Amino acid sequence: MFPDGEGPAADPAGSHFERRIRSFQPRRSRVTASQGDALRRLWSRWGLDIDGSRVLDLDELLGGRPVVLEIGFGMGEATAQMAAADLDTGILAVDVHTPGQGNLLGLAERAGLDNVRVANGDAIILLREMLAPESLDGLRVYFPDPWPKKRHHKRRLIQPEFLTLAASRLKPGAVLHCATDWEPYAEQMLEVLTEHPDFTNTVADGGYAPRPGFRPLTRFEGQGLDKGHVVHDLLFARTGKPSGSTG
């Protein structure tokens, strides 16, 4: 635990919202000295807790830049690389892994990146309660938990209900970019995205996309490739008016 204002809260939304099936597992594992130092010094400036209490002013938060939401950034290396390569785009990066939050803040400080903000908590609450309709210029979901056991498939993030919520927060034409090295999950992603009325595949033949140059090879991707996994990228653009309204 960190003192108020000096780091992310253990359960920022508390019991204010319904308990649903979670697509993630909170992980407050061991924080190194450097990660803890970054959290204490930088959280009040570059971090925010997803408490569902307000709608964020993204222009104020990221200096008027177009904003891309990244859900699940691990230790933050790829996020920092993408932020450094595109300083005119703001990245709102969400995760529940405390060491990763501290690591990304430290990376951003060392590289002088003021276009990164780190959010702590449930991305669903962030999307539903704290982001205005059509406020995002992109959404990235790289290597989400595949929940490989059949009885856990309902925990996978990329489901029709999530896509409807995400579409309502994306601007028309904004791209949802997913990547996974788990073949069955890639097939599910392709199926539900192809069938969803609010998204259209940016690939002409309707299949997977080649890895775009702006997405760095991540640590998780390297681990998957070492195991012989095939990595699939999916890039789907939000169509006109979302079919479902959530705000």
Rank of each mutant, 00 (worst) to 15 (best):
A84P: 00
G102V: 02
R128T: 01
A119I: 10
T79E: 13
L105C: 09
A78F: 11
T164Q: 13
P146K: 04
G102D: 02
L163Y: 02
M75V: 10
L176W: 06
K150A: 15
G138S: 10
E161W: 12
I124F: 14
E183R: 13
Q81G: 00
A174P: 02
G173W: 04
P144F: 07
V96T: 15
D181S: 08
W182P: 00
P66S: 07
G102M: 08
T180Q: 09
A84N: 06
H177D: 05
H97Y: 15
D145H: 08
P133D: 10
E161R: 13
V175T: 13
G72W: 10
Q159F: 01
V68T: 15
V141C: 11
G100I: 04
L163R: 07
N103V: 00
I125L: 15
F73D: 06
N120D: 14
L165Y: 01
D95V: 12
C178L: 14
A166S: 12
V67S: 09
T180P: 00
L136M: 08
L127M: 14
G72K: 06
D181L: 08
L69K: 01
S135W: 03
F162P: 01
L165N: 01
P133T: 06
L104H: 12
L170R: 08
L92Y: 05
T89R: 15
K154H: 11
E183T: 11
V68F: 00
C178V: 11
